[in-house]
Nucleic acid binder design. Structure first.
Lengths: 192, 192, 192, 192
DNA sequence: TATGAATGAGACTTCATTCAT
DNA sequence: TATGAATGAAGTCTCATTCAT
């Protein structure tokens, strides 16, 4: 066997990193940040504690990475053509992707809500977050303006609150929540 | 020097208990349940750690008491005449009281959201909570039915989600959130 | 009502003291010295913690008093005429009283064994104890000598060990231990 | 630097575990279970408190392990050919080994007596113990039967009590106790 | 790269004892 | 005399992080 090339090493590192992040996400979301020990994460990822520290500096580093990755992921679905302007079709697309994500990646969403309610954790990400939220509220505000709203800012805010509340309720009782119905009603309300 | 009377002891205990609960609520809400140590609570209440255990059996007992007190407090404003039926006037009253509470007791609301997202903490209260939530969703469902809704259950759910989302957003950025405007819009939407 | 006389006060004090000692003995014997808190003793005696400290200086003081009282009590049955010499009849009397005590005052006997095996507690009483044990071993030694033993010291020691072992086993499983049979066999062996 | 092999880890663990058990045994026996803190044990073993918990789950786990190890050790000397039947030679062998152990492992014997007198500690081991005691009493009972006893059960009980009493007295004053003499007398009495 | 033994700070909790009333 | 609120030291245990191999 020839020695591994640098590129191969790089790939192994990337894979490992992902495995660790997934293991951590699952535990953080299901058991909470404080109740999840580094030991458990390492065990869940199938590696040793020591090795974990080879990939992430600290427990904080881990959760920061998870959250930033997740937020970056989210933005893909908002304003996909990146022209800074939302059309009805784009909003519909966003809602559909949003609900798809809610269903398929419950861990991240649990974490998302967990995180914002954990003051200590929130502090780690609030700057980046504030920027994002502001950007999207502006975009929504414009959207409502161009659809004839008299108070577009409040409308944007309601829209955001509704999405948060829905996510929240879905997380609290995912079994009984009628995701599909709710999605359709939202699209009816905001994209027709 | 005669010893204290039973009534005096009772008063001391009442006062102290309140002081401890307030100190704990403030810290739990601002720093999170796990990040708040018993030491901090005791210091914040101006007493020794040992004394705290004279009043509450454990950290769990503390948070349980806080949450149950808060939930009991909430119910006072829903269906005030306790006939199991909501009128428009009653819903308006509830919304007004709710927003008042949101403004005046920010600590409890922060805690409320924290709690539902902390799996370990949620477990402590979920039974009592499930009963409450069910009861109010039923009531709302009836309300929407008698106001001509075609899908009262989803409407009830939306209403609940909206309230949660509003509370959530207010907690994240209380300074900039236009509470008054939002309240009025809600009353317009649901109680006219 | 006329004010209580000094003598009456003294009587009340004595009664209280006894009540406390009994409450403490019961708990020490059944739950162990360390597992018994001052609070429990006070509660079991029906008084407040504070008052207990009015009668006994400390937890150590309490156990010391209990043990010394108990040991003093024991000596009543050995060599009742106090001539420093044991007759067969006296030994028989002692054995009979001993077994009676074992049956009627199980708390003290439990404590007796507990105590000697608790190094920290033993230290409190070992001086007084050593003197007593020595005295009785000498007496027994003489007894065996005058009954024709070739090795009276070892015989005395065996006798003592047998009594200790019997007490020990009775304490471990009082329900099934055949006290009566064992007593008779002992009297047969040593007093005939 | 290659990492340690699994075998190396295994060896480290074995050694450490033994060191901790020895350190704990010494302290439990000399100062009692409750008076011995985990800190003291760790210090006596030359390690940190934290590491101790890497090897034993709790203080209870520690004492349980010590006692069970000790009891298992004991049984090696009873009925060595494991045919469920005691011969005179076997009983003699047991007594000799027992006295050897009493002399060489005073800590364990101190602990043995301590344990049975500590209600809280006894609870941890009483099940396993009851089985053992019953088994050996049966065996002894048979032994006395086949040696012509009229009341083999009481004889077995006396034998057991005598051994316990001897151990007890030796523990209380090991310096002056004539172990050798006592052993010989026992062998004379029971194995000739 | 990879392991897990090892550390040490800090968490929750208990309890003998004191003290104001 | 009598109460129980209050203290503070000490105990058990957890866990993020480091480090020798």
């Amino acid at each position: 066997m020839s020695p591994r090339t640098e590129k191969q090493f790089e790939e192994i590192r990337e894979t490992r990193k992902k495995e660790i992040l997934e293991a951590a996400l699952e535990l953080f979301a299901n058991e909470g940040f404080y109740a999840t020990s580094i030991s458990k994460i390492a065990a869940n990822a199938g590696i040793s504690k020591g090795l974990l520290y080879n990939y992430f500096e600290s427990k904080e580093d881990l959760i920061k990475t998870i959250i930033f990755n997740g937020l970056d992921n989210l933005t893909r679905f908002v304003d996909p053509n990146k022209d800074g302007f939302l059309t009805k079709k784009e909003l519909k697309y966003f809602l559909e992707e949003m609900f798809k994500a809610l269903k398929n990646e419950p861990y991240f969403w649990k974490l998302y809500f967990t995180v914002f309610m954990q003051p200590q954790v929130l502090k780690l990400v609030e700057k980046k977050l504030a920027v994002m939220v502001h950007k999207y509220l502006m975009m929504l505000s414009e959207y409502f303006t161009s659809n004839g709203s008299k108070d577009p800012e409040t409308d944007a805010l309601f829209f955001g609150a509704l999405l948060d509340g829905i996510g929240f309720q879905f997380m609290v009782d995912p079994e009984r929540f009628p995701l599909e119905k709710v999605k359709n009603k939202l699209i009816d309300m905001y994209c027709k």
